[in-house]
């Protein structure tokens, strides 16, 4: 579960990333974070994963007090999260399989666990056949599937995606979004920041709209700019 209590993030240059945000996301929810560029979507996600800390207020994630946690605990917070970015961030010198396995090596999984989990994760994202391919041999959509497999392989409670379809064509974007929904249906909380108007409108999920760092609306089965 994720809870923001009156959380504000002012960057060191004085720019306000997020202002007095209070919101609660329950376990198992699927949430879109939308809003114009610069409205604070990425800041919201960065606070969840402790890439930034709130300058005021509180942020709770999976039982951790993110606003006030020792640096030594951050890795354990991150292990409870899976993260996906617009720009994939795969290691170019490792195959799809090794990229996913790498995430498990990092958390010191056994070789046996790795051999069992990695094919499962690749299967889940429909990429079993490309396990041996290197990132530059994969399409954008395929690369993002590898990233999803990597984010999921350690079984995180929450999946965070910052514009996961930002570099993909509409058809592929839909495939990725459907995959995210499938992942959500298996019990993982999914939070997606996006600009994909048509997809958000069609999927009828909870939608939190940000503007100038503040929550402008928060609706179940919401849609894009539904006020006008």
């Amino acid at each position: 579960m994720i809870k923001f209590v009156d959380a504000t993030k002012v960057y060191s240059n004085g720019v306000v990333g997020l202002r007095n945000v209070t919101v609660k996301i329950d376990k198992g929810e699927f949430v879109f974070i939308i809003g114009p560029s610069g409205s604070g979507k990425s800041t919201f996600l960065k606070l969840i994963m402790h890439e930034e800390v709130p300058t005021e207020g509180e942020v709770y994630v999976n039982g951790y007090s993110v606003h006030d946690m020792p640096q030594s605990e951050v890795p354990y917070l991150r292990r409870s999260l899976g993260v996906v970015f617009q720009d994939f961030r795969l290691l170019p010198n490792k195959t799809a399989y090794d990229n996913v396995a790498f995430a498990m090596q990092i958390v010191e999984a056994t070789n046996r666990e790795i051999r069992r989990q990695v094919p499962l994760a690749l299967g889940l994202v429909g990429l079993s056949k490309k396990a041996k391919a290197y990132p530059n041999q994969l399409s954008g959509g395929e690369q993002q599937r590898v990233v999803l497999a990597r984010a999921l392989v350690n079984n995180p409670a929450v999946l965070i995606a910052d514009e996961p379809t930002g570099n993909l064509d509409p058809k592929t974007s839909w495939e990725i979004m459907n995959l995210l929904e499938e992942i959500n249906q298996r019990g993982t909380t999914v939070i997606v920041a996006t600009h994909e108007k048509s997809i958000v409108d069609a999927m009828k999920k909870r939608v939190i709209t940000l503007e100038h760092g503040e929550i402008k609306s928060d609706e179940q089965k919401g849609s894009y700019f539904n006020e006008d």
Binding site: M49, Q71, S72, P75, Y76, L77, R78, R79, L81, V83, R89, L91, F102, A103, I106, V107, E108, R150, N154
Partner: peptide, 16 residues
């Protein structure tokens, strides 16, 4: 850089 960044996101310990 890139690898270190990924390691941080996945939750690698500092020592690792």
């Amino acid at each position: 850089r890139r690898q270190i960044e990924i390691m941080k996101y996945v939750g690698a310990l500092d020592s690792f």
